[in-house]
Design a protein around this nucleic acid. Structure first.
Lengths: 107, 107
DNA sequence: AAATAACTTAAGCATGAACTTTACCATTGA
DNA sequence: TCAATGGTAAAGTTCATGCTTAAGTTATTT
């Protein structure tokens, strides 16, 4: 039920790279193999796989290897945790501003 | 109206460090000076200021120096952008799963 | 005016991140 | 069976990150 702070590190770290965000974006349109994921990028396959490992390590992506092909899919429950953390802080600060506004008697 | 991808890099990068998230958390309880922000951490002041610069560079925090004291506050509009990006991807994938469920005739 | 408080600047260092190339397995299809 | 496909492993390079210490620079206070 609690946030695992270590996981938040990994999640936001994973989201900080534009290549990885593009890979996530691709996966919102459905599962993909490693080569399919790699195709849009001007980068070696091992580099793409390293990004993929970061995404998997953060829990944002799940993969499964069948035969010689590894298939990648989004894990939205982890995304939701990252989103939730921001939302909690943002709204906590929002409420504080509301209380301040009340105190100042604005409307 | 569009996402600035460069800013997302900086935002998520800023959120990836536990010290910086703790600083944000502190700021949800109201503005703070640099020394006040630094107080909970077993770290030199310059180190804290460097974290602060990352937060400011990402737009998550605004600061203003008055006299010799610099006061820091949250900027929630930027937080909302980070949150929005995740939400968009997560729900896009969610809808895809829904369509798949429809196709499979589940209920 | 001198001391202190609140930062700021600069430099250096150790670690990690984002690639690369090369070589190496496993499947699978001809 | 043997070549091609899809991915994995290892090692090296370069640049960024997260600190440190030491030495300023401005406000305030006394």
């Amino acid at each position: 039920m609690l946030n695992q702070p270590a996981n938040l590190d990994l999640m936001y770290q994973a989201l900080a790279d534009p290549t990885r965000r593009a890979m996530l974006e691709r996966l919102t349109r459905g599962p993909a193999s490693v080569s399919q994921l790699a195709e849009p990028f001007a980068m070696s396959l091992p580099a793409v796989v390293q990004h993929l490992q970061v995404l998997e390590g953060s829990g944002l992506v799940k993969t499964e290897k069948i035969g010689r092909v590894r298939t990648c899919t989004l894990d939205t429950t982890t995304m939701q945790q990252a989103e939730q953390w921001i939302n909690d802080r943002r709204t906590a600060w929002g409420k504080r501003l509301d209380r301040l506004a009340d105190f100042l008697g604005e409307d």
